[in-house]
């Protein structure tokens, strides 16, 4: 399937709106219909934003395997936006925790980050996302050079692991939901391990034929 530049533009606009819509719904409900968010609307908002951050991390990580399976190279054109949405949802998730749970009590927040392992890993994941968001522009790819840009953006792997761990350690007893995220992440990372292993075994020629454009980690 080949997409013309015009179609890719339209697709990007669609994906942008779709990706923003969970936030839009939550924001609209918070302002006009908090009742729809249940008895603890702030908790609902914080958790939904966290869920969406994890989902966008997984979707971003799904681009490469999906492209390999389908041959749809245009998927790569969406990846930066998807990754930035993961960062966006991480940011508003953190903001809602700071505002709703701690009412901007910075000392208490710092204690929370240092003391509670699930907060520590969540916050670490957020900090690691910062350099990725900051170097997401074409100009930054050029400035860093494709090789080091790619190396830097491999940080997304530990970020996703920390994100799932954050969820896992947050739940009290029933880990069904975090386990689903963990399985999906394991599949996405496992795919990369298998692929790298095959490459190393001499599938070089075939691999380079499928190699993505410069500046994309896989």
């Amino acid at each position: 399937m080949y997409l013309t530049p015009g179609r890719i533009g339209a697709l990007k606009a669609l994906v942008f709106l779709a990706a923003l819509s969970p936030f839009g719904r939550l924001a609209a409900a918070a302002v006009w219909f908090p009742e729809l968010l249940g008895a603890n609307p702030a908790e609902y908002i914080t958790r939904s934003l966290g869920d969406w951050c994890l989902r966008f991390l997984l979707v971003t990580l799904a681009v490469t395997p999906l492209r390999r399976f389908t041959g749809w190279n245009w998927l790569l054109r969406l990846r930066r936006m998807l990754g930035l949405f993961a960062f966006f949802y991480a940011s508003v998730h953190l903001a809602s925790y700071i505002a709703f749970d701690h009412v901007f009590d910075l000392v208490e927040i710092l204690k929370d980050v240092l003391k509670r392992p699930f907060v520590t890993v969540g916050f670490t994941a957020f900090l690691l996302l910062l350099p990725l968001a900051a170097t997401s522009t074409n100009a930054m790819v050029r400035r860093l050079g494709a090789r080091s840009w790619r190396a830097l953006h491999r940080l997304v792997y530990p970020i996703a692991i920390l994100g799932v761990l954050h969820f896992w350690w947050m739940v009290k007893r029933d880990v069904t939901e975090p386990a689903i995220y963990a399985l999906l992440l394991a599949a996405l990372l496992g795919h990369r391990v298998v692929h790298a292993w095959r490459d190393a075994r001499g599938g070089r020629a075939a691999a380079s034929a499928r190699a993505p454009a410069a500046g994309s980690p896989r």
Partner: peptide
């Protein structure tokens, strides 16, 4: 302190802020 939640403040249902 609880290992999972700071017990300093609480949110009165259905308020937004744990004030």
């Amino acid at each position: 302190d609880h290992p999972r939640w700071s017990q300093k403040r609480e949110r009165r249902i259905p308020e937004f802020f744990a004030r």
